[in-house]
């Protein structure tokens, strides 16, 4: 176990090098967020006679996007998938086959370290932004909601990581995985709830999406926080989210074992 803590330490030191880059990225990421919030304000203003649109008030809608940004900062895979694919392509994973260290656990430690640093750096612009928008920012209704939100966010992070990890392992079979990474990203973006909360979709479509892992990559924890998912539905959701994490873990292990058999250690 000790060696993995060491990996986390190394990961933190490595990512600290990019702190300015992270700050830039966090600031730039606020631009689309602001644009989306203004867009919704204009929509609410155009429909001044109805205070709610698809069950959302302006404050709930604004909070949705703010929270989505926070959860995203805490859980999104940044460069990990590219690095994994490059490790395979350039034959650098050979050393992991020789050492008593598990590659998945190793990458998970690096991912965790990267997220901690990114979240710490992004906290500054994000907090400033929330202070500016405070009149539209809702707090969770009680302590339990907050705890469940945090638990669900951890599961989201695992889900995000395992999914990207599995896609990156495609590098065992194909030379260029970047297109696959972007296709997955596109699905996560719309079906995960980055663009809009999923319950404003026609209910048949929203229902169909709930059978995929995507809503559990962002929409689910945010909805817990906002109290839009509660009671039995919430517990069932957490169970499904855990099921997806377990499934993807199995899939990642399976892909790794099949991949290793094909692996030719190019240049390694």
């Amino acid at each position: 176990m000790n060696k993995y803590w060491h990996v986390v330490g190394v990961g933190i030191q490595n990512t600290l090098v990019y702190r300015v880059n992270f700050l830039f990225r966090a600031c730039f990421a606020l631009i689309p967020l602001m644009a989306t919030i203004y867009l919704w304000r204009a929509i609410f203003a155009s429909n001044a006679d109805s205070p709610q649109i698809a069950g959302y008030s302006l404050a709930t809608m604004t909070s949705y996007y703010l929270l989505a940004t926070i959860v995203d900062a805490l859980t999104a895979v940044a460069e990990d998938d590219w690095q994994i694919a490059a490790d395979i392509k350039d034959g650098r994973i050979s050393q992991f086959l020789l050492k008593p260290i598990d590659y998945l656990a190793y990458r998970l430690c690096l991912f965790g370290a990267g997220r901690i640093i990114y979240a710490a750096v992004a906290a500054l612009p994000a907090t400033l932004f929330i202070v500016v928008q405070r009149s539209h920012f809702l707090l969770p209704s009680d302590g339990l909601t907050l705890v469940l939100f945090l638990a669900s966010t951890v599961l989201t992070a695992l889900l995000q990581f395992l999914m990207s990890y599995t896609i990156a392992l495609l590098a065992f079979w194909v030379l260029e995985v970047s297109t696959f990474i972007f296709i997955l990203f596109a699905f996560e973006y719309i079906a995960g709830g980055h663009l809009f909360p999923l319950d404003i979709l026609p209910s048949a479509l929203a229902n169909a999406l709930s059978y995929t892992p995507f809503p559990y990559q962002l929409y689910f924890p945010v909805s817990i926080y906002l109290g839009r998912i509660a009671g039995d539905e919430l517990w069932r959701g957490l169970l499904i989210q855990s099921f997806w994490v377990a499934t993807l873990f199995g899939l990642a292990r399976f892909a790794w074992h099949r991949g290793i058999r094909r692996y030719a250690a190019v240049g390694g």
Binding site: L39, I43, A45, S46, I53, A54, A186, I190, I200, P202
Partner: peptide, 17 residues
């Protein structure tokens, strides 16, 4: 995706400004 976003928004409103 971008067009889908607009299609979804206009399910709930007739106009943006």
């Amino acid at each position: 995706l971008q067009i889908a976003f607009i299609a979804v928004i206009y399910q709930h409103t007739d106009r943006i400004a």
